[in-house]
Design a protein around this nucleic acid. Structure first.
Length: 379
DNA sequence: AAGACGGGGTT
DNA sequence: AACCCAGTCTT
């Protein structure tokens, strides 16, 4: 049972670790976080309750975004939506407007969805892990942060900082990603149950100021004398990475459906999901054993509800985005039967080749568009 | 170009 | 439960 604590780990000196960390934090931690002040603008006493609303907003903003980036957006947010009630009486569009520039817009959308859910729950703030995690956009780490920050309740956290700290502390020889259960147990085990708010913040501060991913400042680390990676080895080796899997190539068949006016059929993707709201030519992923012409016909039947015959090849291109490689194989098609319907997109449109430039396409499609323009110019 | 990252979705 | 994903930033 690798995910439970070994005897050796149960002997790690938690009392000394807690004491030394909190002592370090009192001098060197971040103590000017606006959402961690009470209504008098003071640092709260142990056990004192804080308003969860500003903390919730901050913690969601802090997902994959650094503190100094978040701060101005949080200020703007609190000016625009100072309370849960003001957020509820607003709408998604205004929320996204305030979110503009912060990235990961689904976070903003989920905050709004969660606000609506809270309203239906009589606007009572949850006091349990499940109560928070069932809200959109809140996983276990964010829930633990909110519960410990707002109510000083003893819930652990496990973000990248904590995974790195623990990996180094015990010189864990594998990727934490594969052993999250064990890391959750260790985070809970380490947590000072008498001062969860301060302790979790101290963990984060230690991770961002001292136990950094590169160039950790071990010489000033309060855990220097307890850290196995420091004493034995090189801290920089941890956390271990999981063996990188090679990115898989997917093959996508795309149809240029034309009508007798020489127009081309394009569709607008749904707003949520990949390339939300952008326009594309109909098509989709090739299934194993499928001929690409069949893929195109099948996808167009599923997405547009028409039967097409797949004709001349236009272009094949490769594109890499994120972790994925795609091969796009593009064929002309003509309608054999049926009336186009937007079965899995927002809308369809017949457009002339010269009007394609007026519609936003995913980057990979630009080369298809220029191939089309080229082709039509020669006719 | 490739990896890290927290929540969520899928299998 | 074990993966995989989208989107953004860092290396």
């Amino acid at each position: 049972m690798i995910d439970s604590l070994s005897q050796q780990e149960e002997e790690i000196p938690i009392i000394l670790l807690r004491e030394s960390l909190l002592k370090w934090w009192e001098v060197n931690g971040r103590h000017s976080i606006p959402w961690k002040k009470n209504c008098l603008g003071k640092t709260p006493a142990s056990g004192e309750l804080l308003d969860p609303y500003p903390i919730w907003i901050a913690e969601v903003m802090l997902q994959q975004t650094q503190f100094n980036v978040v701060l101005p957006f949080w200020n703007q947010w609190m000016n625009t939506f100072p309370s849960l009630d003001s957020l509820i009486s607003s709408n998604e569009e205004e929320v996204l407007y305030v979110w503009q520039g912060l990235g990961y817009y689904s976070r903003g959308r989920r905050i709004y969805q969660a606000a609506i859910a809270l309203k239906e729950n009589q606007k009572v703030w949850p006091l349990t892990l499940e109560g928070w995690t069932e809200l959109p956009g809140i996983g276990r780490t964010t829930a633990g942060s909110i519960l410990s920050s707002a109510f000083d309740l003893p819930f652990p956290i496990l973000d990248g900082n904590v995974k790195r700290l623990i990996s180094r502390l015990i010189a864990f020889p594998k990727s934490p990603v594969k052993h999250v259960a064990k890391f959750w147990k260790l985070s809970e085990y380490l947590l000072d149950k008498k001062r969860p708010r301060d302790f979790n913040q101290a963990l984060m501060d230690l991770g961002s100021f001292v136990c950094k991913p590169v160039k950790p400042s071990c010489n000033i680390c309060p855990w220097k004398s307890y850290c196995i990676a420091y004493s034995n080895s090189k801290p920089i080796l941890y956390p271990m990475k999981s063996v990188s899997k090679k990115k898989k190539i997917s093959v996508v068949g795309i149809g240029i459906v034309t009508n007798d006016k020489g127009q081309i059929l394009i569709d607008q993707r749904l707003n949520d999901g990949a390339f939300g709201g952008l326009w594309e030519f109909p098509g989709g992923k090739q299934k194993s054993g499928e001929k690409i012409e069949f893929t195109i016909a099948r996808e167009i039947k599923e997405e547009i509800g028409i039967i097409v015959s797949v004709g001349e090849h236009l272009i094949t291109l490769q594109h890499t985005y994120g972790q994925k490689k795609v091969h796009l194989i593009v064929h002309f098609c003509s309608i054999v039967k049926g009336e186009p319907k937007p079965l899995s997109s927002q809308q369809l449109r017949w457009v002339g080749v010269n009007d394609l430039k007026d519609y936003p396409f995913p980057a990979a499609n630009e080369r298809i568009n220029s191939a089309l323009i080229h082709k039509y110019a020669k006719r």
